[in-house]
Design a protein around this nucleic acid. Structure first.
Lengths: 333, 333
DNA sequence: ATGAAAGCGCTAACAC
DNA sequence: GTGTTAGCGCTTTCAT
């Protein structure tokens, strides 16, 4: 069996309290005693049972992170950042995939599985505001990105509307007037918010808005972006720019444009949204919006840990600073 | 406070044992009693304390997965598959990033942090065989991919040598003779093994091997692949094919080739290794090796869970079936 | 079919 | 400065 405090105490010839004191770096331990205990620990290869410690202390040192799917670079990179920040703060991260399904997301908010964690960072896709109502108030939760709920939950979000508006403004400033939007969807999610920003920019500039240029896609992936562009071309729609509502759509669009012999950015400028690592290495490199992922990851972890053991206080809603990253696919002019 | 078994028992007017029986679907409970208990559970919103259960049972239902970095698509996709399989098997996954650093990897093998997990799947990069010696024998561990250690640890690996040989054979069969290798490194890791397979294929075909064609890179990323190609071009090395030892290198290479005006695959054919989701969507789409990641992820989880609670038995070393995925960047002919 | 009670390994309040 | 002891919430013999 693995050695326990009692074993160490016996070997060292002291009580378990003393051993506990040594382990927890309690100040008042005589050096000689500390020495004895440490020798016993080394000899037995003792390592504290974290489960027991958790039961006692009520903390596990584990937080949960739930994202739709790690095979999407956006969420993989986000998860990496969350884990890195968590490590800095001395906790580890349990990662779940929801597939963006409302049921899985809702379930996570009250799953007993969470009994092993001190809190949850959830990046929802299908969740409805009503799902947040019957949530156990005591369990620290932070909602991430995308969608804003009108519920008493901490929320770390991004400026979907303003950032999308900035993206479209960038294209307009470069002289583009026929901007196709890929991945659009009239909802309260990221798609709807970004579309709203796009329209605001058009309105600001007094550019008419043409429904033909708005393309819905089944998924926000490369195939979706490529298919959307092929669809535009097939329908004979005239356009001189593409705004992919995320980078993957934009990258798929570039592929389809090149297949069709349309030069990027000369004939068609392309901007994305997310600033994936990949965006900088695409051919051509992708002009995109950095929605502040690093900031989001860090703030989410810090906010969550701030709630652990002290759940009180108003729900905070903060949103990350964003930036336009100008690259080859849509230069300034 | 959150309700406990005792609270439920009191409200239901039974003993905690009976409540426990109901929760754990114990067969011998009278329907009327079960009913009463379930009402009490619902009324109180009781949810079992998993920490206490873990302490008692010795199991946590959590496994740890340690990979170098989630911002590398290969590991992100692998992690997603591991998590998905784990969910099917009823456990959750704690994800750690090692940065590929030996110290972090070594530490994980005996970290007390692991006290919260039932086992560890480790995808090592820097680890040495000697690091495996002083590992606690009782803690279920599975080593993943890449490198083969001569140690009594379960190992789910890929056929680095044979798969790389197949990649080079594919290029040779297409008539290429001057094959540049990117990301090479003479070690016992993936780089060294894949390089070995490449050389074996050359030798089989009686093609001379030219050291000028072997390029080391600092990292296995896009920038590394692009720089390596630029270096070859700058040195005036003659080549008609590129074997990127992973997909990211190959994708970076394609970018640099296109920048330099070399047509892919006409002038230079390119193959990668990994079969990232992205490989199918690149321009041109990337011919690559699928090293059997899905199989690896599932087998790793299944092997690990097989060890939990029954650590005995010979260490198993299994290796995944691989396949050449022929796409545009290096067609069959 | 249900209850009483021991104990998983640890922390911390309280003695000495 | 160090020892004693009472739980944390659960599962699980052993009675009844």
């Amino acid at each position: 069996m693995t050695p326990t405090l009692h074993d160490v105490a016996r070997v060292a010839g002291v009580s378990i309290k003393t051993v506990s004191n040594v382990i927890n770096a309690h100040p008042h331990v005589r050096p000689a005693t500390r020495e004895k205990v440490q020798r016993a620990i080394a000899e037995l290869g003792y390592t504290p049972n974290l489960t027991a410690r958790s039961l006692r202390s009520g903390r596990t040192g584990v937080i949960a992170l739930a994202v739709p799917d790690l095979s999407f670079s956006y969420f993989a990179e986000l998860a990496g950042m969350v884990i890195a920040r968590a490590e800095e703060r001395g906790v580890v991260v349990l990662v779940e995939q929801t597939g963006g399904e409302r049921d899985r997301e809702r379930e996570l908010l009250r799953s007993p599985r969470l009994g092993l964690t001190d809190g949850l960072i959830l990046s929802p896709l299908g969740l409805e505001a009503s799902d947040l109502a019957d949530r156990p108030r005591t369990y620290p939760t932070v909602l991430l990105g995308e969608r804003v709920y009108d519920a008493p939950v901490d929320h770390v979000t991004m400026q979907n509307v303003d950032a999308a508006r900035a993206a479209t403004q960038h294209l307009l400033a470069a002289g583009r007037r026929r901007i196709a939007v890929l991945g659009a969807h009239d909802d309260d999610g990221a798609a709807g918010l970004r579309l709203r920003g796009h329209r605001a920019a058009l309105a600001d500039a007094g550019v008419a808005h043409d429904p033909d240029l708005i393309v819905e896609t089944r998924f926000w992936d490369r195939a979706g972006g490529a298919d959307a562009v092929r669809d535009l071309l097939a329908r004979g729609v005239d356009f001189d720019a593409v705004f992919g509502l995320n980078d993957t759509l934009a990258l798929g669009a570039i592929r389809a444009l090149q297949e069709a012999g349309r030069r990027v950015p000369d004939e068609v400028a392309v901007v994305g949204f997310d600033d994936l690592d990949e965006a900088a290495y695409a051919i051509p490199s992708l002009t995109t919006i950095d929605p502040g992922r690093q900031w989001i990851a860090q703030t989410a972890v810090d906010t969550l840990l701030g709630r652990v053991g002290d759940a009180a206080g108003e729900a905070r809603v903060v949103s990350a600073p964003f930036e336009v990253r100008v690259r080859e696919s849509a230069p300034a002019r």
